[in-house]
Simulated assay, not measured.
Amino acid sequence: MSEMREQIFLSLHPERTEFYRWADDRLIQAIVEKPGQGSLAGGVYLGRVLRVEQSLNAAFVEIGLDKPGLLPLKRQGAQPTEGDAVIVQVRRDGREEKGVRLTTSVKVPVDVVALAKGKQPPAQLIAPPTVWHTALEALAPEQVASIICDRRVDVAPVADWCRKHRRGMEDKVAFLPDREWVPSRTDIKERVAEALDEEVVLPGGGKLLIEPVRTLTAIDVNSAAATAEKGFERTALSVNLEAAREIPRQLALRNLGGIIVIDFIDLENRNKREQVLEALRQAVGIDPAIEWVGNMSRLGLVELLRRRAGPTLAEMWQGQNG
């Protein structure tokens, strides 16, 4: 787990929610959400089974969205049939042509059966958690130094939520108008602009090329920008180590999910490959959404899996002004 003490900046306006994590003079996470644009994960619905696909061992369930959700049946109890009403929770947001992923294993501290009584599907029973709820729930209280709200009226509700859901954070909530934020909004926006670039220059001169495609995200590590002007030649190991420490931060900041394939610079020495892999596994502590890190192949390839949650940074920032 990272030892950095993080500052959280919150702007909870009706027309737009902003959440920023800042540590060690760097932006770690940036979320901007307008009403209706956020993640549906965690929402609970009374849905209607449209059809059961035996070949997929899954059912398609209408919950009131443009596309039906997919409900895997492998671990379900009684098998639903077409037309059945089912209570489901969104496990994963939809992407492109795919609908949301659903489960009947609903995890909420209320009686959802009582909520569904008298309702006709499709109907929302519990709204998805707000973006700042989800973001704060993913963090350990000890890693957060402060939670700064840009409106005084938001301090009490945020502190009350922390008291109920993230005890230990409630005394860290404070008001500070955004004109007094350090970093400033201008600083934050500059860092966001950097994170929208597909290239990342590492401190020692190496470079990352980050290319999200439809099925995965490919990250190429290279030493093409290694700094000859500094008077020494960067080794493949040192560039790879810098990349391993930087990649989890970039994934969190850009909110890139799914399968990530990292192509490190080739290392013939097995011990050096293990050193890079260990650096990567230590660095992922900064990002609670990273669920799995694989081994490194002889060619320097490493796969990892990051949980999808809402739109990417590029999608969030598209069309944003101010």
Rank of each mutant, 00 (worst) to 15 (best):
G168C: 07
R26H: 13
K230V: 03
K164N: 10
L209P: 00
R152A: 15
V32L: 14
R91E: 15
G231H: 05
L70T: 14
L139K: 12
R234K: 14
G231W: 00
L313G: 10
L202A: 06
W132M: 06
E242N: 05
V112F: 06
R163E: 09
R298H: 11
L46P: 06
E278S: 13
L299F: 15
E211T: 14
D150P: 05
I188G: 04
R214I: 10
A30G: 04
S146F: 03
G47T: 13
S184F: 07
P14I: 15
S11E: 15
F232K: 14
L136A: 07
G118W: 03
L56M: 15
P128A: 07
A193G: 06
R95D: 06
G43L: 04
P212N: 09
S105Y: 01
G118F: 11
A309L: 15
A116F: 01
R16P: 11
E229Y: 08
G204T: 02
Q275V: 00
R95H: 12
R152C: 02
L71Q: 09
Q29H: 09
V155W: 11
L10G: 07
L237S: 02
E194F: 12
S184V: 01
R254N: 11
V200L: 11
Q76W: 04
R273N: 06
R151S: 14
I126D: 01
R92C: 06
E6I: 15
L10I: 13
E82N: 07
I87M: 02
M169C: 10
S146D: 09
L241Y: 03
P109D: 10
A23M: 03
G322I: 09
L27H: 03
V90M: 04
R92D: 05
E229C: 00
F175S: 09
K98G: 06
L313H: 09
D25A: 13
R152D: 15
